[in-house]
């Protein structure tokens, strides 16, 4: 069996990312974004990071996609009237192609090698590092999530701002 499954996952990731940018309707972009998140979870599985793959599906494909689709539904006008196109410009496209080619050139001129470890990336090891070496960062993330929750509720109130 010579065909590598990782090429399929890479193809899905790149094609769905392109469709997120280029889909006609922004709702279709949201659905392509869900496929993109699932493809990234597949890439995490290929990299032997199973815990991150599960977290990716739970948070990104579950929560963030729902937030995106709710925002699209709340900001939609009547059907078919809000299709904002993209202001395509040859200069922007060429500049990002040059950016990508520069990165590709730098990467293929360097060489990396996988380190040989036996069991890598178990949830037990991640939890040990998270709660011993990075416990202060963990608490700061908890504070950040609380602040983000309160500010999102405050900003999206009905009687705030102009109305």
């Amino acid at each position: 069996m010579n065909v590598d499954i990782s090429y399929i996952v890479w193809g899905i990731a790149i094609i769905s990312a392109i469709y997120v940018v280029h889909a006609k309707d922004v709702f279709h972009s949201g659905l392509w974004l869900a496929l993109f998140f699932i493809a990234i979870a597949g890439i995490f599985v290929l990299l032997e990071a199973e815990f991150l793959a599960v977290i990716q599906i739970l948070i990104y494909a579950g929560a963030v996609t729902v937030i995106v689709l709710f925002a699209i539904m709340l900001t939609k006008r009547e059907k078919g009237k809000d299709v904002l196109g993209i202001n395509l410009n040859v200069l922007k496209l060429v500049s990002f192609v040059i950016f990508a080619l520069t990165l590709v050139g730098v990467i293929i001129s360097s060489s990396f090698r996988w380190v040989e470890v036996g069991v890598y990336g178990s949830t037990y090891d991640i939890a040990t590092i998270l709660f011993e070496r990075y416990i202060l960062h963990f608490e700061m993330i908890a504070l950040l999530l609380l602040v983000a929750l309160i500010s999102a509720v405050y900003l999206a109130r009905r009687d705030s701002g102009e109305s």
Binding site: A63, V68, L149
Partner: peptide
Amino acid sequence: IAAAEAGVGFA
């Protein structure tokens, strides 16, 4: 951080 950013950004 991405989850927090998505919540505040869409608000």
